[in-house]
């Protein structure tokens, strides 16, 4: 209710301001209180934006007060189901709206088995953001160092700037070390590909998986796991927080010491069964259940690595429709 009053007040303020500004032009143009110019148009734009923001906000809040959550969601669902673009119903997911779209992981055919699973790109995103930060930070430190050096050379030392370079430089050193360690981990250990014979996965069914590890290194151990992870997003004060919990873990494959050489990648095959009581993959705005195949490796003279390959588990049905059979 408070928000509705705020937006209504904003709307009224906008109307009054606009009326005043325009009315002066007709009532007493000789006074030239608001002469047509930059200031006039700025006032008009501000008043119109007040009217627009206030009016929209007020209508939305009133609509929220007058309609229930279910009614709003039903209207939103109806609107989203409208085929405005005329694309037809080639991707009808009306029965499984909360299961992530299968098309995202079935668009890449495999060499040995039907599908090659995409890798979760979170580490790559961290590396890209990290590289931008390192470049910006170290550039800033270099510029400050140049200024401080020049000041010293000219005989007018800037001691505050010089001393502040010590913590700045230390932070830059540790950030660079972290970045290159991550870079080495991501690029030094060769690419990992995971292929699977069928998608989506269904509870109580057995699937075949093939892991191919490229590179030039000696592994002490390689483990392949099937994981189910719950994810919750929530607000704590003004912060948006995530919490994840692994609720199921199954070791699909465990390989001891082995050598990988260029041209002779490590190829591992295994079968696994999705548990019969498995909850299907689920994704909503603030909660999710993810299933993934995880490849963990401990390599000699390399940092250990862990790579995730999401899969999608559908709910068990009495008569399972064959959605994909490319194996």
């Amino acid at each position: 209710m408070g928000e509705a009053i705020f937006f209504a007040s904003l709307f009224l303020l906008g109307v009054m301001a606009l009326t005043l500004v325009i009315a002066w032009q007709f009532v007493a143009p000789e006074l030239q209180v608001y002469r047509i110019g930059l200031g006039f148009w700025l006032l008009v734009i501000a008043a119109v934006s007040f009217i627009f923001i206030g009016g929209t906000g007020f209508l939305l809040r009133v609509w929220q007060l007058w309609t229930s959550d279910e009614h709003r969601l039903a209207l939103a669902r109806k609107a989203s189901s409208l085929d405005l673009a005329g694309r037809g119903k080639s991707n009808d997911r009306s029965d499984t709206p909360t299961i992530p779209d299968l098309a995202n992981i079935t668009d890449s055919p495999g060499v040995r088995l039907a599908y090659r699973l995409p890798s979760s790109q979170s580490a790559m995103a961290v590396m890209v953001i990290g590289s931008l930060f390192i470049l910006s930070w170290n550039s800033m430190v270099a510029v400050f160092a140049g200024i401080a050096f020049t000041a010293h050379a000219q005989g007018h030392p800037r001691w505050f700037l010089t001393l502040s370079l010590i913590p700045f430089g230390t932070a830059g050193y540790f950030a660079s070390r972290w970045f290159f360690r991550l870079f080495r981990q991501l690029t030094g250990v060769g690419a990992t590909t995971v292929e699977i014979n069928e998608l989506p996965l269904y509870p109580s069914r057995t699937y075949e998986v093939c892991i191919v590890q490229q590179g030039h290194l000696v592994f002490k151990q390689v483990r392949v796991l099937l994981l189910c992870e719950e994810e919750a997003t929530f607000h704590q004060g003004t912060d948006l927080r995530f919490e994840r919990k692994i609720v199921y873990s199954q070791c699909i494959l465990e390989q001891g010491r082995c050598r990988v050489e260029p041209g002779r990648p490590l190829e591992l095959r295994a079968e696994f069964k999705v548990p019969g009581y498995a909850m299907h993959s689920f994704q909503s705005a603030h909660n999710a259940i993810h299933w993934k195949i995880v490849v963990e490796g401990d390599a000699k003279r390399w940092p250990s690595f862990c790579r995730n390959f999401p899969v999608i588990v559908y709910p068990a049905v009495r008569e399972t429709p064959v959605l994909s059979n490319r194996a």
Binding site: D95, T96, T98, E230, E243, K245, V247, M279, Y314, P315
Partner: peptide, 20 residues
């Protein structure tokens, strides 16, 4: 009733159905 989501009692989340 739809194929999903199914009722679920998890660790971080629970999923419930109801007629309201």
């Amino acid at each position: 009733l739809p194929l999903s989501p199914l009722s679920y009692e998890g660790y971080l989340m629970k999923l419930r159905w109801c007629v309201r």
